[in-house]
Every structure is written in C-alpha cells, then in structure tokens.
C-alpha cells in the first residue's frame, strides 16, 4: 500500500542523505520526495511517498524517528489529509489541435504558462490522480516533456469546532 509520510527535520547539510540512505539501506523505495524550509528556518519539512505493507511502513517510521536529526514523523495515510502536486507539461500544439488542448486544460483548471509556435507548456496542480488523468488526455497530442514535483501533503484540521 502507498503511504505518505511527513517528516520534520533539522535544516542542515547531510540530513537529506541520512533520511534517504535509511530507505536505500533497507531496500525500501522512495517514490517521491519533497523538501523545503518551514516557517522556522532551522526546520525543514520532507514529504515522502513510499510503498510497503504495514510492517514495513511501521519499521520505516520507527527508523526515521531514530535518526537524531528527525524531529517528528507522521504517516498521513491513516488520517484525513490534503495532497497536491505540481506538474509542468510540454505538449505538441499544432494549429489544428490547439483549441482541443485548451479545452482539456480548461476542464482540469490548468494554465498555459508558455507558448511556442509548436508547443504549449501547461501548469497543472492537483492530486496525483488528476495530474495522471490530464497526462493521459494530452498524450495523443504528443507530450514532449513532463516534470512533476512529487507530492506534498498536510493533515486536515478537525471539522468539529472544538
């Protein structure tokens, strides 16, 4: 099963490699990984997507907690959360296809951020499925390049007003 793990770490050199070598040393694959500073510049947030059964993921989270530079680990999969990823998609756009491509982009609430005589570059945000879906619809026109950020995620606030 796919898990989204959110980790607060010290914002120092070497920390990313400590985290990633923990995965590689045990033969666990990282599907995507995002890192950036938090409000506190001494702390960074990593969002890692990995796949494994419950026992493997439990072991991963325990091992992450054991790293000295790791402050907090939460597996967001079990709780309500919002996830997003950003993709830039460069697609062939011949004069005949342009209108159709634009309508696809419109349906997905994407944006054209760069235009050339033969291509559109599209910015797309959404969850992984949405990005996947638009990719499939654009594929027939010929995708020249695609760059995805990988997933970022955040737990939802409790709905009851306590």
């Amino acid at each position: 099963m796919r898990h989204t793990i959110s980790i607060l770490v010290d914002n120092e050199f070497g920390v990313l490699s400590k985290v990633s070598s923990l995965f590689s040393g045990r033969g666990f694959n990282i599907e995507s990984l995002c890192v950036a500073e938090t409000l506190d510049p001494k702390v960074s947030r990593m969002t890692i997507v990995t796949t494994g059964d419950d026992q493997i993921v439990e072991q991963i989270t325990k091992q992450l907690n054991k790293l000295i530079n790791v402050i907090k680990v939460s597996d967001l999969t079990a709780e309500e959360h919002i996830e997003r990823e950003l993709a830039l998609i460069k697609v062939n756009a011949n004069a005949d296809d342009r209108a159709e491509i634009l309508s696809v982009i419109d349906i997905f609430r994407g944006k054209v951020v760069d235009v050339s005589p033969t291509t559109y570059t599209i910015e797309m945000t959404g969850d992984a499925e949405k990005v996947g879906a638009i990719t499939e619809l654009l594929r027939p026109f010929g995708i020249k390049e695609i760059v995805r950020t990988g997933k970022i995620a955040m737990a939802r606030s409790p709905k009851s007003g306590k």
């Binding site: 050199f13 070497g14 000295i68």
Partner: peptide
C-alpha cells in the same frame, strides 16, 4: 561522514 552514515548512530562534519 558519507561512508559511515549507515554504520554510526550519528556523525558530524
């Protein structure tokens, strides 16, 4: 530091 990362409890440069 890179070489000993997997065999130390922690390491520093």
């Amino acid at each position: 530091v890179g070489i000993t990362r997997p065999c130390t409890k922690h390491n520093y440069l």
